[in-house]
Nucleic acid binder design. Structure first.
Lengths: 377, 377
DNA sequence: TTTAATTCCGTGCACGGTAACGGAAAAATT
DNA sequence: AATTTTTCCGTTACCGTGCACGGAATTAAA
């Protein structure tokens, strides 16, 4: 058996000669899909009328409307997206409201999703604009919204940090019929198109399981590095709840220590950790619920200890490096960039194809990263 | 602050009124992208000639060719895909050669990727045909190839089980200029467009780490359930190597037991396991390298044991159920369906958009699944 | 030089839908 | 009955490419 176009094969004991592949003929079969003209012919109307029906633009009598609808479902007509895109001129813009942060941060990671759409064809001719706001400043969201208004978006992606301000925006969007998608978290809202996020409670549960390895543990340390400790809306609060519940269920007598650190104060980290471990040298299990586990890395590497386990969240570059070095044992990742690209995808499918997402609430998979599978992430 | 179109915001201490969102105007800006006609005008040629240049169809003088090329790069022209698709009639077919197996099996899982393309617009009007073959019968691949030839594919996806037969096919495809992509594994080949697969050695390494939890272990059991034990091309051989290396490196004195079972013989499983654990009751760590860990589930559930750890591969439905029940501790997954859809995507981008994949060899991420994150998979 | 063969290029229709425009028909008003 | 308004619909000019066809210009053969 060899190449060169002569191929013989043994089929049921007989030697059979096979044909060759033919040069691709892309002008084939054609499948004869019904077009808008077919509908027009059948109903005795013109394609203009059919088009009006298809787009609910009115100016159509009830009789013809129904005739067209019937013909459509009878023939199984579906519009040719390419022709539609071509004729329409293909210019949509999508506004993304997300907190904006320093390079390498969680939200910076999410922003990366803007530039890698899932669907190159859908995204052609669509401009996606990122309107960043300060997650600690409610007014900054409104300022961002203001700038966004000028771009007249056909769809909006929102990572809602502020309940009431977000509600104001979504109400306005609803009024205009502009679809919007929540990512990361969502607020009570009657009209969002879809939501993409992580199951926070479950992620805490998973975190605890990864930290303890399913075995009994005497004590764990939870490090909380966050600016505003008293913020009403700590995004990781459910995660913490899940973590606690797991521990209570699986190791009822495990002591959970908590360490609060202000990120602004770099000295404070060293000091707090020193103090804590002077008092509790036996603790070997450390968890963090936000994406900043990397800031612990320097201290951890200065104070190595056998059998220590550190679990954190999110695939920030700095986190993954700490993981590779073995400083962090496990990272639980939620693909913030994918959340964004899925959100954009959902919007475009809605806007361009008129398709509703299969599920409204979509929970992302939680990836478990260790030093042994981080390379291919 | 409330809805109703009146929005005031505090900016730097001043209260500012914000405008409202405007009704989306999709007929905006238009970006004025250069068209084929612009190129024609500039070069003083006609669009026919420009088109010939764009598609390398010859019948163009060197002078005009270069003129067109220059104009293209000067204007930054890129073709309007929608117009192109519309005019061309959008009919491509892609042939997928994959082993075909019973429902719920690994290859059945992979086949699912055929129906969920990443890119709905790209895939419109493309027919993807699955040509299954028997992974134990080399001739069956050729028979499948024969059937595939008749469909005149524009691109081919191959999961190569047989080195030489695959080489025959790819040589023919190369001669015809039909691009092909390998999935799962690849053979030495000078012309494949891309490869999507799992890093097998590393997956074994990861498996060992998940099994031992990074701790010392006295002994592990490797169960091998496979039909043809002496097959030259055991696809999991590198995985086993990675596993072994990890154990040797991390637990030099760990005893690795191996149990060989014929899958056809259901009785054999019970018996073999009974016999083994009669002789080695202390063993609590079990690993399997192919996707059939679920066949161990009945025995494991009949003989529960505290602290037992079982690690297997691939997200078959049966495996995930065993995971949910806690029978299996960890599954390492490689997304066979994604391999397929990525392969198809790469082909289409090549065929339709003329775009080459960013990387030729693409290793999929290895997902770690436990009972706590399997729900959102 | 005439004729035949190449080489190269322009023209024009098709692809399926969009939406502006204007007009016929029906209904409402005077 | 004449006029205005409204409702409804057909016509038509695109959108940007693909490609077949035929013809002009150039070269080779006679």
């Amino acid at each position: 058996m060899h190449g060169n176009g002569k191929i013989f094969v043994n089929v049921h004991g007989k030697t059979v000669k096979l044909l060759n592949f033919a040069k691709t003929d892309s002008r084939m079969a054609q499948a004869e899909k019904p077009t808008i003209m077919d509908i027009a012919r059948i109903t005795g109307l013109s394609k203009g009328t059919v088009d009006r029906v298809l787009h609910n633009r009115g100016e159509v009598s009830k009789k013809s409307y129904e005739a067209v609808m019937n013909a459509i479902s009878e023939l199984g007509y579906e519009p040719n997206v390419y022709a539609s895109m071509l004729a329409r001129g293909t210019s949509h813009s999508i506004a993304v409201f997300m907190p904006q942060d320093v390079p390498g941060s969680f939200w910076d990671l999410a922003a990366a999703g803007i530039d890698k759409p899932r669907d190159p064809l859908l995204t052609k001719g669509v401009t996606i604009k990122h309107f960043g706001y300060d997650p600690t400043d409610e007014d900054s969201l409104q300022v961002a919204a203001q700038r966004a208004r000028e771009s007249k978006p056909s769809g909006v992606v929102i990572a809602p940090m502020f309940r009431s301000s977000t509600a104001v925006i979504t109400e306005e969007l609803r009024g205009l019929g502009i679809p919007y998608v929540f990512i990361d978290s969502k607020i009570d809202d009657p009209g969002y198109l879809a939501y993409f996020g992580m199951p926070m409670y479950r992620s805490g549960y998973l975190c605890a399981d990864q930290l303890t390895g399913g075995r009994h543990v005497d004590g764990v340390l939870v490090v909380r590095i966050q600016r505003d400790v008293n913020r009403k809306s700590d995004p990781t609060i459910n995660r913490r709840a899940g973590f606690m519940d797991y521990i209570h269920e699986h190791c009822p007598d495990c002591v959970i220590h908590s360490l609060l650190i202000n990120p602004a104060d770099t000295q404070g980290i060293e000091k707090a950790m020193d103090e804590f471990f002077d008092a509790h040298p036996e603790i070997r299990h450390i968890a963090m619920f936000n994406s900043r586990v990397n800031v612990l890395a320097p201290w951890l590497e200065k104070h190595p200890q056998r059998g220590r386990r550190v679990v954190g969240f999110d695939n920030l570059e700095a986190n993954m490096q700490a993981l590779s070095r073995g400083t962090v044992s496990v990272l639980i990742c939620q693909h913030p960039d994918e959340q964004v690209s899925l959100a954009v995808q959902a919007l475009l499918e809605r806007i361009v194809l008129g398709k509703h997402p299969a599920r409204r609430d979509n929970f992302m998979h939680m990836d478990i990263l260790t030093r042994y599978n981080v390379d291919f992430y």
